[in-house]
Design a protein around this nucleic acid. Structure first.
Length: 890
RNA sequence: GGGCGCGUAGCUCAGUUGGUUAGAGCGCCUGCUUCACACGCAGGAGGUCACAGGUUCGAGUCCUGUCGCGCCCACCA
């Protein structure tokens, strides 16, 4: 069995990746409903994938597969994007790649483009869409969203409308002049920027007085329809009932009394622009003020802006300020920090605009969504996110769901061209319900992609039909996601799920950290600082990238992804590879065929049992057992970093560093006995299964090589059971004995290194101990000799007083004494003195505690007891150290 | 303005309900071409756990405050 010296992931991963994709696509195609996520994205389509998704894939796969191993058929919701978003993401990514400004592209052109992609990428795009839970039907000669999903969307819309939870009206919305669409509040990102506060003087009509208003957006003054003062503000009592002259526009506008004007803020005078400011909109409503819309949908000034019509809003701002200054009406300008709302997607400054849109009334939905979290039906992990969730839910505002884009789900509403009636219906009505006219037109708007996303948990399972899938998979157990879509998606799935299914969509929400780069910046598609996972996997291997993500994935913290980490993960992969290499090479030499132990359902294999187990066998089985326990618990608690660390430590520092070293000695002796081989392969195979969720490709490859002789094995390691803890496999006696052996070897190495002894020189020494230490040492004297290069005598008696040139190390179990050259006694003395210092410190601390009456009376029994016991040990050790020092002195 | 989180070894971070000499990886130092692995082996140095108080027999861990950093929410002209 030839096996290369260095593990080259590129040679094996593509093969296994394809295997996985085929399998998952098969699953996706042969059962309705959402597919499991794939291990890695199909090449060539994704380009640069969001690293968060990588993590999701890693986590989902870990958990999903494990569940499957345990025979739990619960469907775990993959954290991939829902159809609408997926489509949009894919489309946008492709557009960006081709350098096309998506906002400027018309619907016709868009469809052309999609057809072009079809020609170009065909099946890969299809695979990508299936991966994202989207169906892709080229045969219909149209690029459409899943018709089933569209049906669910229409159904939900109509039902919400019938319940009065959807309304259409003219309100202030966030308008993106770049995308030319309305946005929900969530899609507006606020940026702290340095702006200006302009103070403008408005003359009071027919009076010599004037009022000074302050604004951060002076161009909006063109649309002012009033100026407000607080009714209780004594400075302006005399002006009640008057009007002011709006500068530049020569309009006379009323001076109104309203609470929006805060007497404590600035001059206490506020300009009112009902068409361009949410506050003013409300004020305008209270006072029945007209709306003068001076900024249009394209971000340019409208005809209402008079001489400024047609100007870009920013240019208009400059002109207005200039003109006011020329007129001497600009009182002052001061720098002012303000937060500017920008479009989440295109970063254009959002303009508050009055327009007719569709809204979802969210308060009633939110009330139920709050309740289910309060009573524990839904649990957030880590728990701190519940607070964030509540914060948002309690302060929720109505949700503007209509978008003026040309992809997405059309709003199921029809307008009668004759009488203006608006009808919401599942299917296009034949005639107007009011006037009977037949000139009907569907509302041109589409829905916010998050609207359909909110329905994902049930719309993908065939709702509104009562399907088998729906019965089986709703509610699901777990949602894994990043906090950046907690509100966008998670919260809304909860609201819609309860509303339409009468039950929560999932029980647990595991929220993982965001992946950050070395500068701690969030990696995101829009920021463009994503590490290209394909490049990383190319360089270090998918398993290494995956492991480094998991190692950094402590709950509640972000993940800093650095190449350093990936490098060390790659080293670990190589370590596994080379451990296998050692096995395979020796198997060949010994003529042992590839062999696997009897299938150990459901978890760990039987221990060596009757098969003449050596100490290292008993020990490693016990450690393997402990490792399985810790790994299982860590995964159950979503502590993936801990699982990764436990596995790392077990494999590298127990299996390789000690167990294999011991076994190498056996091979040297006699090529290994049957029991040696059997135990060794059993442990190795179990370790591979333990490691598999963390390093799927490497372990799969090695497992395939191991199983080659056994046709009855499952086709993949992922179908083999995950090792479980079994109490009867714990062997504390073996662990204790092995510990003594390790201590002796480590102590000897330590002394050798400190005394700067020649590594090749065999050193003589003696081990003095009681009972077990001597027995264990004696029966493993060869191991000690090989691993520490010392030749020991074993004496079951107290260590003699010091006798000149010797180095000594003591543990509670034994004293180890090495003969050393005379010139090294100084070094030895120094070491002993340092040790004495440390011991004195802890002895003093222990004594102080034990002398403390309150401690003795209040601390629990076991704490006091263990300190007493420790103190005895410390003191014994200190005595030995003192003896050593005295000997050196003489 | 409101909310959340973080400050632990040179760097990146762990540290589940307060309990015995605070851990890992990388980096650093010393020594090893030992026939699985230099993506390695053996050994080592390095921390008054941001600061100040408090609760407690006992605090990296709980409470209060201060300083520094990050994030989220918010119709503050």
């Amino acid at each position: 069995m030839q096996i290369e010296k260095v593990y080259e992931p590129q040679r094996f991963e593509p093969h296994w990746a394809q295997w996985w994709i085929d399998r998952k696509l098969y699953v996706a195609q042969h059962r309705p409903g959402p597919a499991f996520s794939l291990v890695i994205p199909p090449p060539n389509v994704t380009g640069s994938l969001h690293m968060g998704h990588m993590l999701e894939h890693a986590e989902i796969d870990t958990t999903v597969r494990r569940r499957r191993m345990l025979g739990d058929n619960t469907l775990w919701l993959p954290g991939t994007d829902h159809a609408g978003i997926a489509t949009q993401m894919m489309v946008e990514r492709q557009l960006a790649k081709e350098g096309i400004d998506r906002c400027r592209l018309g619907r016709e052109k868009f469809e052309d483009r999609v057809w072009q992609w079809k020609e170009q990428y065909g099946d890969t795009i299809k695979a990508q869409m299936v991966r994202m839970g989207l169906s892709c039907d080229w045969s219909r000669e149209r690029f459409t969203l899943d018709p089933g999903l569209s049906r669910a969307v229409r159904e939900v819309f109509v039902r919400l409308y019938e319940k009065g939870l959807i309304y259409r009206g003219e309100y202030m919305v966030n308008w993106c002049p770049g995308c030319r669409t309305a946005l929900s509040d969530l899609e507006v990102a606020h940026d702290e920027t340095q702006g200006n506060m302009w103070h403008i003087r408005y003359p009071v009509h027919g009076s010599s007085r004037s009022l000074v208003v302050a604004t951060t957006r002076p161009e909006t003054m063109l649309g002012d329809t009033a100026v407000a003062i607080n009714p209780a503000d004594p400075r302006y009592f005399d002006l009640h009932g008057l009007t002011v002259d709006l500068p530049l526009m020569n309009r006379e506008i009323p001076l109104i009394l309203d609470e929006v004007a805060d007497p404590k803020f600035g001059t206490g005078v506020v300009k009112i622009t009902p068409a361009h400011d949410p506050n003013d909109f409300e004020a305008g409503r209270r006072h029945h003020l007209p709306h003068v819309k001076v900024i249009g949908e394209n971000g340019h000034m409208t005809l209402e802006a008079g001489p400024y019509a047609g100007l870009d809003r920013m240019e208009a701002r400059r002109r207005v300020v200039q003109d006011l200054e020329d007129l001497g009406l600009l009182e002052k300008v001061e720098p002012y920090p303000l937060s500017v709302g920008k479009c989440d997607r295109c970063k254009t400054v959002v303009e508050p605009l009055v327009s007719i849109q569709w809204f979802v009334k969210t308060k009633p939905l939110a009330a139920k969504a709050i309740e289910v979290v309060e009573n524990g039906r839904i649990e957030f992990i880590p728990e701190m996110w519940t607070k964030t969730y509540f914060e948002w839910m309690y302060n929720i505002r109505d949700w503007c769901v209509s978008r003026q884009l040309w992809w997405g789900h059309r709003i199921p509403a029809w307008h009668c061209k004759s009488c203006g009636e608006v009808m919401v219906a599942r299917e296009a009505p034949e005639a107007c319900l009011r006037c009977g006219g037949s000139m009907l037109e569907q509302d041109p708007d589409v829905l916010d992609t998050w609207f359909s996303s909110a329905l994902w948990p049930f719309s993908t399972l065939g709702w509104p039909d009562e399907t088998e899938d729906l019965k089986l998979f709703y509610p699901t157990s777990l949602l894994i996601t990043g906090f950046d879509i907690l509100f966008f998606w998670v919260a809304r799935m909860v609201m819609m799920g309860i509303e339409f299914m009468g039950e929560v969509p999932f029980r647990q929400v595991y929220i993982h950290g965001l992946v950050r780069d070395a500068d701690r910046l969030k990696m995101s598609k829009t920021r463009g600082n994503t590490i290209d996972p394909l490049a990383m996997t190319e360089k270090y291997g998918t398993d290494a990238v995956r492991l480094s993500l998991l190692m950094g994935a402590a709950p509640g913290t972000d993940i800093v992804l650095t190449e350093d980490r990936m490098e060390s993960a790659r080293a670990f992969a190589n370590k596994i590879w080379n451990a296998a290499r050692l096995l395979f090479m020796n198997m060949e030499r010994s003529g042992v065929p590839p062999w696997l132990p009897a299938d150990p359902q459901p978890g760990l294999p039987e221990t060596a049992g009757s098969l003449a187990a050596s100490l290292e066998d008993r020990w490693i089985f016990s450690r393997l057992n402990a490792c399985a326990e810790q790994a299982n618990r860590a995964i159950d608690q979503y502590r993936f970093h801990e699982a990764a660390q436990v596995l790392w430590h077990f494999f590298w520092h127990e299996f390789c560093d000690w167990y294999l070293e011991f076994k190498k000695l056996r091979f040297e002796e006699n090529s290994g006995l049957t029991a040696d081989w059997r135990n060794l392969l059993t442990v190795f195979e179990s370790a591979l299964r333990l490691l598999h969720p963390v390093m799927p490709f490497l372990t799969e490859e090695l497992w395939q090589r191991l199983k080659s002789a056994d046709a009855n094995r499952p086709e993949s390691i992922s179908l083999a059971p995950y090792p479980q803890y079994r109490q009867e496999s714990a062997d504390l006696a073996a662990e204790h004995e092995m510990q003594i052996l390790q201590d002796a070897i480590t102590a000897a190495r330590n002394l050798r290194a400190e005394m700067k002894l020649d590594p090749k020189q065999l050193v003589e020494g003696a081990l003095y101990g009681r009972g077990i230490a001597v027995t264990v040492g004696r029966s493993h004297s060869q191991a000690i000799r090989k691993l520490a290069n010392i030749d020991l005598e074993f004496r079951e008696e107290a260590a003699p007083g010091a006798r000149g040139a010797e180095a000594r190390r003591s543990t509670p179990e034994f004293d180890l004494i090495l003969r050393i050259p005379l010139e090294q006694t100084d070094a030895q003395r120094k070491r002993l003195e340092k040790e004495k210092e440390q011991l004195d410190k802890v002895i003093a601390a222990s004594r102080r505690q034990l002398a403390d009456e309150t401690f003795l009376s209040r601390a629990p029994e076991h704490v006091v007891g263990s300190i007493r016991q420790k103190l005895v040990e410390y003191e014994a050790q200190a005595a030995k150290v003192r003896a050593g020092l005295e000997g050196l002195a003489g």
